[in-house]
């Protein structure tokens, strides 16, 4: 079972309390009616599906109930960091070295 750090509760808790909620940092367009069908399709359906560090949303469903963002390595399933919703995207360069050490 994964252990996930909730940035609101400030505790590292079992995965069963959390729900996955898709890719993070996707802003809903301000004026959907002005968008072309292609752009709207891009917003609705197209995700990066990264192999490696991936920005994603999680929700502490059975806890504080908050949505937050996480960076998870989709290969190793390791969480590199979690941060509050609305916070800027953390720089991957600062996150990756500790992960390399952890893989020894």
């Amino acid at each position: 079972m994964l252990l996930i750090h909730c940035p609101y509760c400030d505790e590292t808790l079992p995965e069963v309390e959390f729900a996955y909620a898709g890719e993070a940092h996707i802003a809903r367009p301000e004026n959907p009616s002005e968008m072309s069908d292609e752009d709207w399709q891009e917003f609705l359906f197209m995700r990066t599906n990264t192999k490696g560090p991936y920005y994603e949303r999680w929700r502490h469903l059975h806890g504080c109930g908050r949505f937050f963002n996480a960076v998870r390595d989709t290969v190793s399933d390791k969480f590199l960091t979690t941060y509050q919703a609305g916070a800027p995207r953390p720089d991957l360069d600062t996150l990756l070295p500790p992960q390399a050490e952890g893989g020894k």
Binding site: E11, P14, V16, E17, H62, G63, C64
Partner: peptide, 17 residues
């Protein structure tokens, strides 16, 4: 309960599964 019960302080409470 998958949580670490000992990590919850006395006199506190948590919503969990």
């Amino acid at each position: 309960c998958a949580r670490d019960i000992d990590a919850i302080p006395d006199g506190a409470a948590r919503r969990t599964v």
